[in-house]
Amino acid sequence: MTSSPPSPADRVCPLVKRESLGGAYALLTFEHAGVAGASAGQFAMIQPEAQGDLLLRRPFSIMDTDPSTSRFTIFLKAVGPGSKAVFDLREGDNARVLGPLGRGFTAPAPGERAFLVGGGYGVAPFALFSRGLREAGSAFHLFYGGRSASELPLVGELERRGIPLTLSTDDGTRGERGRVTVPLMDALSLVPGTPRLYACGPEPMMRAVAEISSEKRLACEVSLDPWMGCGLGTCLGCVVKIQDEGEPRPKNRPACTEGPVFDARRVVWEKHS
């Protein structure tokens, strides 16, 4: 987790394993030595090799890696034509994969507790992040929320990995009823010290976690998910408003190369909600 990730490689590589998780959800494993060395919070740009009339690759967070077999796994929800095209890949099909890309999560300091907050398919990078936290001996807990039980398809996978988990759904069909920030607040009132917060999910959720971190003066990182065109910092389509110290006003920064993970204090939320 501390070694620097490899520079990105653009390759045609096969889908070696596809596991449906029901509905629009699936786990896809590709063979790509570069991305197999990704760190948590990084992503890859992926499209089928037979791209048809869809031009742009889509960004997918890395859910898991296995450097020994040069494989990496994404947790995917088909939400539009680009992600649907990747969702529809079959084992043995080729994809154009560029990665690993972006800046991932910063590891907590020794002895520092980590609270991970994942909303919907935004939970993906926390599977890989949890592995690193466990190897580093860091205390951590994952809060995983969605609108209903059917939107928590990764629960089985996370439980199998023995990740300490609290579930919540807006409609109460799984775990606690209500927003994911409710159990997060409960936990924050129970634990001593100053846990470090990490959030990935819908923007209102990340914004709520960022506000909690601000009120409680906790370090917080968020993984932003704007429309992204290239992943290389050249199309400048994925800019987010970032306010840096000493700058008179916020600036448009590409999330693909300067993020997608940002210190929550730098993010100007109202501009891209």
């Binding site: 009339d53 869809l54 031009l55 742009l56 034509p81 680009g82 704007p226 429309w227 065109g229 199309c235 400048l236 389509g237 994925c238 800019v239 987010v240 600036k251 448009n252 501009k271 891209h272």
Partner: peptide, 23 residues
């Protein structure tokens, strides 16, 4: 220059619509 506000890109059939604003 800081360019246009986001969203700046939208994919259309076999095309890409952009308004980056020369950042």
């Amino acid at each position: 220059r800081d360019g246009c506000e986001a969203p700046r890109i939208a994919e259309t059939p076999a095309g890409l619509l952009n308004a980056i604003g020369l950042q």
